[in-house]
């Protein structure tokens, strides 16, 4: 047996999905209320994707996100009570964004930037999802960046033509932005479909997946944490 050379911070896509779910329900959704343990767990859940991203080499965005998270959390606890009026409102918005929404965005960013289509497919196959879902998901994940690239090119072209908000045809700005992007995407999408089908995608045979994914120490740790969080949540309901 080969020794496992995978760095410790690489985790199974299924565990990434767990982290996303925890973030979504407990940090963004605020389930569990004001329970002290839950408060601590929220910080832990927020910092898991940040830490993993940090080790994965995405230093700058991680540090920025961490600074904003901590700063606004401190503001929330200290300054917020004493503010009034407009400042109070602005602070409220910012706290909402940086303490509740940002951790979710970061865990989404973590998932998207560290998971390859083939790994996601492997994970979904291990979860025994049907091909009717796996194939469209794989295609979507593969194609979404292409569609965004097309959108970028259209954006460039609009800049060059001097078409912008507040131009001569404001009601058509949506049309200008969407129609060329969709047209180009449909054409590229057709090529992609043809190529994928000619390479045997969509056959009724059970697919194999060669991606070496599987649970390791860190994965088990996170799943235990997940179970514990749900347990704490249940106790708050009692």
């Amino acid at each position: 047996m080969e020794t496992d050379k995978t760095p410790f911070y690489i985790i199974d896509p299924r565990t990434k999905l767990l982290i996303l779910a925890l973030n979504s329900v407990f940090v963004f959704g605020g389930a569990g209320g004001a329970d002290t343990t839950m408060e601590i767990l929220r910080h832990v859940i927020t910092f898991i994707p940040l830490g993993l991203l940090f080790f994965g080499g995405k230093r700058k965005p991680v540090l920025l996100a961490a600074i904003f998270y901590v700063a606004f959390h401190v503001l929330q606890v200290t300054l917020f009570e004493h503010t009034k009026g407009v400042l109070n409102y602005i602070l409220l918005f910012s706290i909402g964004v940086f303490v509740r929404i940002l951790p979710n965005i970061m865990s989404g960013y973590y998932f998207i930037s560290t998971t390859r289509v083939s790994e996601l497919v492997g994970a979904m196959e291990k979860m025994h999802l049907t091909d009717k879902l796996i194939i469209p998901i794989a295609v979507m994940m593969r194609f979404f960046p292409v569609a965004m690239e097309e959108a970028g090119a259209v954006h460039d072209a609009m800049g060059m033509r001097g078409i912008r908000f507040g131009g001569r045809h404001p009601s058509k700005i949506l049309e200008y932005r969407l129609i060329p992007m969709i047209t180009c995407s449909v054409k590229t999408g057709e090529e992609l479909s043809a190529s994928a089908l000619a390479r045997g995608l969509g056959s009724p045979i059970k697919r194999t997946n060669i991606c070496s994914i599987g649970f390791r120490a860190l994965d088990y740790a996170f799943w235990i944490l997940g179970v514990f969080t749900v347990f704490v949540f249940i106790t708050t309901l009692l």
């Binding site: 918005f93 965005i105 569609a147 479909s193």
Partner: peptide, 29 residues
């Protein structure tokens, strides 16, 4: 068929790329 499933994937991506045009507003509460 396989073709239908691939089509769904492509159009979901296009749908998302389209709503991203306004979706970024969601970052402002």
């Amino acid at each position: 068929t396989g073709k239908d499933l691939v089509t769904v994937g492509i159009y979901t991506a296009i749908y998302f790329a389209s709503i991203m045009v306004v979706g970024f507003l969601g970052f402002i509460p």
